[in-house]
Design a binder for these strands. Structure first.
Lengths: 131, 131
DNA sequence: CGGCATCCGAGTAGATACTG
DNA sequence: CAGTATCTACTCGGATGCCG
């Protein structure tokens, strides 16, 4: 039973008195989409990256989505944007200490996903009657 | 530098040869939305829960969204659904061993979010000129 | 180079009502 | 009780084109 931990996480568990700020809904969920996770992982692996480097590494993302995600991550304080005021433009992104600390969790969860993905793919096939 | 870990996670890092299956995009991202995380956390805290119990705990979710998320989690093998074939209907959800192992990561990340949420809320205020 | 503006279609969320 | 059906509103993502 981890109701103790849950209590610590949520503050309390009474649906009739929901917390003002939920750590999952209001803090975490804005950066747990696939693009944000990939941005953070790749920045962790390269210490600093330019916009188009990120865009290449995260194959499939559009400029629009990338710049939106970068803004959210910057606003929450996971990354910093450095504009070198050069021509042509040069901008670099890097993790903050908050971002680095979050990255530790992300790496563990990514490793977990990597180790278990074959199992999950099999589950999807076996459970294709659902959905 | 954690390019070693990244390589282990992604298989390789060459954007010209993207992996067929990306652990983040294709495995993780379907269960990292706020509702799925909350479902898994609450199931972890209660060992088993009925549909409407979950709905009450996860204040704000609709029946429709909850049943959709439950189906995805069941299909990927994180949870099992047990129908007791009683009248009135009784259905219970519980974590599988895969779900339990995933839960360990989730708890750590939830605790991280809980510890850092005040910092992040402050960041959002200070960076409100962005966005 | 590093974006932003615009448009568009697909998917999602929520409210409400209904059912075995 | 545990959902499904339906409808609407809205967001999101991708594509395209442009700009300093």
């Amino acid at each position: 039973m981890l109701s103790g931990k849950l209590k610590k996480i949520f503050g309390h568990l009474d649906p009739n008195n929901p917390p003002i700020v939920c750590p999952i809904r209001d803090i975490l969920s804005s950066v747990t989409d696939k693009w944000s996770i990939l941005v953070l992982l790749f920045l962790g692996g390269h210490t600093k990256l330019r916009f188009n480097q990120l865009k290449s590494l995260i194959y499939g993302i559009s400029s629009k989505s990338l710049s939106e995600k970068l803004k959210i991550l910057e606003k929450d304080g996971y990354i910093v944007r450095e504009d070198f005021l050069e021509v042509p433009i040069r901008v670099e992104y890097r993790l903050t200490s908050l971002g680095l600390s979050h990255l530790e969790q992300l790496i563990k969860i990514a490793e977990w996903a990597s180790e278990n993905m074959n199992t999950i793919i099999k589950n999807r096939v076996n459970n294709s009657h659902l959905s």
